[in-house]
Design a protein around this nucleic acid. Sequence first.
DNA 1: TTCTAATCTTACTCATCAGTAAGTCTACTT
DNA 2: AAGTAGACTTACTGATGAGTAAGATTAGAA
Lengths: 216, 216
Amino acid sequence: MTDIDRPRRRLPRSVREQEIIDAALRVFAKRGYRAAVVDEIADLAGISKPMVYLYLGSKEGLFIACIRRETQRLVTAFREAAGAGDDPARRLWAGLTAFFGFVAAHRDSWVVLHRQAPEQSEAIAAELAAARRSVRAEVTGLIGDGIARGAGGAVHLGRDDADFVAHALVGAADSLTDWMELHPGEPPEGVTLRLMNMTWVGMRNVLAGEVWAPPR
Amino acid sequence: MTDIDRPRRRLPRSVREQEIIDAALRVFAKRGYRAAVVDEIADLAGISKPMVYLYLGSKEGLFIACIRRETQRLVTAFREAAGAGDDPARRLWAGLTAFFGFVAAHRDSWVVLHRQAPEQSEAIAAELAAARRSVRAEVTGLIGDGIARGAGGAVHLGRDDADFVAHALVGAADSLTDWMELHPGEPPEGVTLRLMNMTWVGMRNVLAGEVWAPPR
DNA sequence: TTCTAATCTTACTCATCAGTAAGTCTACTT
DNA sequence: AAGTAGACTTACTGATGAGTAAGATTAGAA
């Protein structure tokens, strides 16, 4: 998204920093942390390498800045969509749709957050683990609510089960990002619909002819 | 799994090659393709670097050899478990259990197959894509059978739906690999049981108190 | 025993890239 | 108009690591 035609205009630090992070996100997503070259990031940001070091400190710092900013964005998008409403199924629907919409629109963010070998350094491993945990925590929260709501009866499900389901859902969603790339026509709602049918209704019942539809 | 005490015994190429691939798998899984250092692989294999190049050609060739061998192993394990029987649910249960068992026993294989940024080179991207496709194809096959079996009634599900479900299942399974690391006590069967309840029965029904049990 | 092919080694080269030194330039203040 | 702080650059250094040249060693065949 960085312009090409810009005639080397000087920009205030706060703006330039964001542009550098934009560029870094693209390059990290395309090449992976280790193969990404800081010079390429600088070029893409329309700037020279020492600026990157002046503002972000190091390649590691740059990567961590990407993770922080994009985690924030993703969690916000999810939370705003899933926050409203009362019915657990409806909130899950809204949250997942926001997720798929976000990933379709910001594929690089997702790739950087979830498709990196985390063992590049202690700091990066910790940062990525925290990022992934916080994304998953959003889902775990929703599922936990669903369990609390539905568990008046014979069910004996706890936090642990919510966490299991969150792992499975996030993993499925991650993988479905690839499926989306193979089916560019499919809107995020379509993906969510299929996933809700699979997990919420259950494949057995789906095979028996049952379908789920979004509330309203 | 390579010995430490070996007094620099000479080994025939066929054996040494496998030991090199063993070592490479561990290092690639631990560090990622780019950060992995060939000298470390050689050390771990109890050999010097030129042997690696003599036998495997290049770092890229070494990586591709890992992918091929481990894909083969995983697909074989899955196919043998899921091949027998008639009931789709039973075969899915068996296949998934084999999968989780395999990943628990060969975590490095899975990490190399599914946790690498594929854009290191044209050849690696192609090889990884093929590997992932072939793993997923096993699942797609099972689901497709299930659909064909169950689709006497009102259901209008096709190959496309099977592929969607396969994506979601493989992604969920991948993520559950992490869950397993957080719950070392849980046997593969336990993980499969939870996943079957979630996808086969459906979360809504599970919340309503229904549970799935493995046949027999 | 002698020869030979396969196994294996030490000791390099050379490209790449993270990080920096030592400034220059320009917008804005006073 | 002069001064200054912040934006920006060119041109390096030093480490790391893929790949190789040139040959040493040993298991077994003849």
